[in-house]
Structures are given as C-alpha cells and as structure tokens.
Amino acid sequence: MRRILSNLTFWVLVAIVTGVCVGHYFPKTGVQMEIVGKSFVDLIKLFIAPIIFLTIVMGIAGMGDLKKVGRIGAKSLLYFEIVTTLALAIGIAVAYIIQPGKVDKQGIVLQDPTKYTRASDFSWWHFFLDNPTLQVLVAAIVLGIVLNYVKSRETILRILERLSKWVFLALKYVMYLAPIGAFGGMAYTIGKFGLATLVPLAKLMLTVYVTMALFVFVVLGGILKYYNISILQLLKYIKEELLVVLGTSSSEAALPSIMVKLEQMGCSKPVVGLVIPTGYSFNLDGTSIYLSMAVIFLAQLYDVPLSFWELAGIIGILMITSKGAAGVTGSGFIVLASTLTALHKIPVEGLAFLLGVDKFMSEARAITNLIGNSVATVVISKSEGDFTQPDFNPQEP
C-alpha cells in the first residue's frame, strides 16, 4: 500500500479522475481550474529549450563524428516522412470507409469560425519564426558542430554536463506537480465543454481514437517488433509520461522526461537529442491522422464527393501543411484552413463543427505523437547500433 501511495502514476490517475468529476458536477469550478493546468504546462515548457540545447550540443560535440550526425539526421527525416505519410493515408482510408461525417447536424451550434478559419498560405519561414523549439534545435546543432573544432572542447563539455545535471534535477522536483497539472487540465476540459456536447460528434471521436489505437499497436507495434521490442513494453515503461499528456493535452509537457527515459532505456544521448526535438515538429503521427480524418469528415458533412486524385491531393497537401502543426499559432485549425482553401471544394467555415470536440481529441493526438516519437528514437538508435540495452526490461529507472 505504501508503494502505491508513493507512486507518481497513482496520483496522476487520481488527479485525472478527480478532474473529470469536478468538471462534470461543478463546471464553473472546473473552468476556473484552467490556470492550474496551463501553469503546469508553462512551467514544463521552461525546461524544453535548455534541455534540447544542452542535449544536442553535448551529443554532437561528444560524438566527434560529423558524418554520423548527418547520417542520423537524414535517416530520421526519411523515417518521419514515411511514417507520417502512412498515418495520413490510414486516416483518410478509415474515415472514407466508416464515414463519421454521416451524422445528424441537428443540435450542432455554429460558432463564429473566423478566429480559427482565416486561411493563410503556409510559409516555411513563418513556421521557423513561430517555432522556438526549431530555433533552439538549429542553434544547438550549429554550436555542436563548431565545438568539434574548438581545442577546449572537453572543458566546455564538462561545464555543459554539469549544467545538464542541475537542469534535470530541477525537472525531477517539478514533475512532482504533475498530478496538480493533470487535475487542472482535465477539470477545465470537462467543465468548459461538458460531456453532452460530444454526442453529435461521438462517431468522429470514436473513429479517431480507434484509428490511432490501431496505428500505435499495428503500425508502430510492427516496427518495434522488427527490432525485438514489444509495444506494450514501451508503453508500460513510459506510462507516467502518457498520463501527464492525457491530463494536460500537451505532448510538450512530457518532452523533457521522455528524453531522460529513452536514454535510460538504452537509446544513445546523441540520437535522443536529435530525434526527439526534430520529431516534435516533423513526426506528428497523431496530428496527421486527425487532420486527414477531419478533412474527410467535413467533406462528408457537406456531402462533397471526392475523387481518388483529390484524396491523393489531400495527402500531398497535408504532407506539407501538417509539418507546421506544432509551430503555428492555432495549430490544427490553421493547418486545416490552409488545406481546405487549397482544395477549393470543402467550405472552410465547416471547421466550426470541430470546435466542441477538438479539445477532447487533442489528448489522443498528443499521446500518439509522443508514442510515435519514442518509437522513432528506438528505431534510429537500433539502426545505428547505439542501443545499449538489447535485453530491455521496462522497470522503473
């Protein structure tokens, strides 16, 4: 009993259940808890930049082999593009077969969509400017490469390693607040939107969740099985991070701790330092599934027929626009607006239908994104021969 009460996972679960109850039975109080969940996520975000910076710089400078850095980067981007494209195709195929958009529109109240549906052309330059994580990533890569040519490299690396230990120690104590953050995030979600608002779009939600579950266990599970690792093993090992994401609806909340977990699992520091931060911008499996299904859902809602080539076009457009989903303000809605505008067939105003359930589906997106990036890190580390624990056992570190 004492072991259970001292387990952070137990308290995160209790916090999530409590948050649901408070949001449902005391909605006004639940809405007021928004600041609690938001503050926890904001606190975690403070650690993201220094951890990414320190990890990548030490990884590249300590590797001493710039060819290997380039190989890992190229291999990662190729993997990201293949897997996210597969996620887009699966999302479209499932939505096209199940047809979640064939629902009764009665009872759905249109809100002012202009805030979310102002379409703007996708720009890589604006994507870079709006994505601090990507900026830190580029700066760290450049500095890591430069340090390979500095004579005092070892001294600088020792200083950075000492700083890294202090940062991760501070993070360890901050993570004790995870139950409070999970409670606030869940209480606000239920209190703000309520359970009843989900009824008209329940079929879409169910389809999204089932599709993402199949993607995790079949596609990602199959990839891991090739490397003799069970997807259930991995999920058990990162369960605390998954619960934090579930409570906060943000995969960023688990970014620092997932990097630590993957290193302790056996993935090399350079691989973790390169793959995870890059994956948060370019390997969004859950977001890709959601975006593709949302487009098909709206097409079905407006009874807009789509040809095979138009479906292929949707995949092509989303292959580009979905890469900006993590860094553009308004993320999903802006990306969807850009995609619908490019198609010139589906009313952009239809995004208003998704407002009520988008928050609830964000948990599925964030969790799938986190699992996808964890699998990618294991795959790249294994392919590089840098996985130090071939007999991985998912025990608490």
Rank of each mutant, 00 (worst) to 15 (best):
G222R: 00
G247V: 06
S257M: 14
S249Y: 13
E263V: 02
M259V: 00
M265Y: 01
V260P: 01
V260D: 07
S249I: 09
A253Y: 09
Q264W: 07
M259E: 04
E240F: 05
L232I: 08
I238R: 11
S251N: 15
L235Y: 05
K236S: 08
G266K: 02
E241F: 08
M265R: 02
L243M: 09
Q264P: 05
Q264D: 06
I231V: 05
L224C: 03
V260T: 13
N228F: 14
L243N: 06
L232M: 05
L224D: 01
I238N: 05
L242Q: 08
L232V: 14
Q264F: 09
L234K: 05
A254V: 02
Y226I: 09
L232D: 07
E252F: 15
N228M: 07
L242E: 07
A254I: 12
V244E: 07
I258G: 01
L255R: 03
L262C: 06
Y227S: 02
Q233W: 13
S250F: 14
K239M: 06
Q264S: 04
L246R: 07
T248R: 14
S250W: 03
L243K: 11
Q233F: 12
I223E: 00
L246D: 05
L255S: 04
K236F: 14
K225A: 10
I258A: 04
G266Y: 01
Y226M: 03
L246F: 04
S230D: 15
I238W: 06
V245W: 07
S257V: 10
E240H: 10
V245R: 12
N228C: 04
A254Y: 11
I238P: 02
Y227I: 00
L234G: 11
V244W: 04
K236W: 10
Y227Q: 02
A254Q: 09
Q233N: 15
L224I: 00
A254G: 15
E240R: 11
A253L: 11
N228K: 15
T248F: 13
I238H: 04
E241P: 02
K225V: 00
K261G: 01
S251G: 13
I229E: 14
I229N: 10
Y227T: 00
S257G: 04
Y227M: 02
K239F: 08
P256G: 08
L242K: 02
E240Q: 12
A253T: 09
M265E: 01
L232C: 08
P256R: 14
S257I: 08
T248E: 03
Y226H: 08
V244R: 08
K225Y: 01
L242I: 15
M265G: 05
L243C: 05
E252Q: 12
K261M: 11
S249D: 11
G222P: 00
L255H: 10
A254P: 11
E241A: 12
L232P: 03
L234W: 08
K236Y: 13
G247F: 12
I231D: 07
Y237N: 05
Y226V: 02
Y237F: 14
G247E: 13
L243Q: 08
K225G: 10
Y226N: 06
T248A: 03
M259R: 08
